[in-house]
């Protein structure tokens, strides 16, 4: 019974983290190329709404997912255009787009509020889902959850193990050098921003078609900001980003599990509900503070360097900076 509960809880966390994983991996890809897509929160809402609306109207979940990805990609394209071609401040454009998309989603989504609609069918993977413990936790989900796993592996492999991935790192770190070696910096930035946006769109679809079915007011509210924070928390590294996403999921799950534990009966319930967000901010502060440097300085320098490399990532050097071709 107790182990059943643990397995089911972990399984729920894995499923619930899918949108965070997808969005933060998408954002990692854009930022690796040097473009900050700050519109995540709005982009996820608008794609979640569109995905549900299209699936609801057409009856096809696949169409819904595609539409959501198209919306995510489109928003990213606007960011890319404004920041790469118009050389405007990425953060400002992203922020305006966040607001715009949130309101648009709310406004256009009104006819679909709290309507029952289609959802991504549950699809346990044959054989794998039968494996004890790991099977139910990882392989007893639906397509979107599997895609969230896949996105991590694919992003890591592409960025760190392929030739084009090297170019991607180049345009994000040292666009001038990349350009000198014949890389079309701005074209690559366009491509990766849009690809990242499509993943963000998929994150939206995973909300309305998989983990929180349907559409309602502020359906996905807040999750985009968390994904943005996790990218920083994860140091622009897919594996650490996914670890951050699951950590956040775990913290959220603890909120309700601990609440009914008699040992915590005297703790005000508000603490549990706001703790994941507060802890996330705390972790971010800790990782980026100078206090950590001081703490690490106490350790033997070789160990300190290794820990520092594991827990802290550096942003791509060209992040947020438009590349001007001389």
């Amino acid at each position: 019974m107790e182990t059943d509960f643990l397995i089911q809880t972990l399984s729920s966390i894995v499923a619930a983290a899918a949108p965070v994983v997808l969005a933060s991996i998408g954002e990692t890809i854009s930022e690796k190329s040097g473009v900050i897509n700050l519109s995540l929160d709005g982009s996820i809402a608008l794609s979640a709404m569109t995905g549900f609306a299209v699936a609801f109207t057409s009856g096809s979940v696949a169409l819904g997912i595609l539409a959501a990805m198209a919306v995510g990609a489109l928003v990213a394209l606007i960011i890319a255009f404004a920041s790469i071609s118009l050389r405007q401040e990425q953060v400002a454009v992203g922020f305006v787009l966040t607001m715009l998309c949130l309101e648009l989603a709310d406004f256009l989504g009104n006819p679909f509020v709290r309507k029952p609609g289609p959802s991504v069918p549950h699809a346990p993977i044959p054989y794998l889902s039968e494996v004890p413990v790991l099977g139910p936790i990882l392989f007893d989900h639906n397509l979107i959850v599997y895609l969230s796993f896949l996105s991590v592996v694919a992003a890591w492999w592409w960025i760190y193990r392929t030739q084009p991935g090297l170019k991607l790192q180049g345009v994000g770190e040292r666009p001038e050098s990349a350009f000198a070696r014949g890389v079309n910096v701005n074209r690559l930035r366009y491509i990766y921003t849009v690809v990242g946006g499509a993943l963000v769109g998929l994150a939206g679809a995973s909300y309305s078609l998989s983990i929180k079915l349907g559409w309602s007011h502020r359906h996905t509210f807040g999750i985009g900001w968390i994904a943005l924070a996790i990218v920083i928390f994860g140091g622009w590294d897919p594996w650490r980003v996914v670890a951050g996403s699951y950590l956040f999921g775990l913290l959220k799950a603890l909120g309700s599990v601990l609440q009914r534990n008699p040992a915590f009966a005297s703790v005000p319930t508000q603490i549990f509900s706001s703790a994941p967000f507060a802890l996330m901010i705390f972790a971010l502060l800790l990782l980026s503070s100078e206090g950590l440097d001081r703490l690490l300085a106490l350790l033997p320098s070789r160990l300190a360097r290794r820990i520092d490399r594991v827990i802290r990532g550096r942003p791509p050097a060209g992040l947020g900076r438009p590349f001007v071709q001389e």
Partner: peptide
């Protein structure tokens, strides 16, 4: 009984009722 913390979901203020519901089912 699991309390989410407000009348409806407000991220950062309440627990997510979707997750709370899943959790209660996981609990049996």
């Amino acid at each position: 009984v699991t309390w989410i913390g407000f009348w409806f979901n407000i991220p950062g203020v309440t627990l997510d009722p979707t997750e709370v519901s899943n959790d209660l089912i996981n609990e049996g």
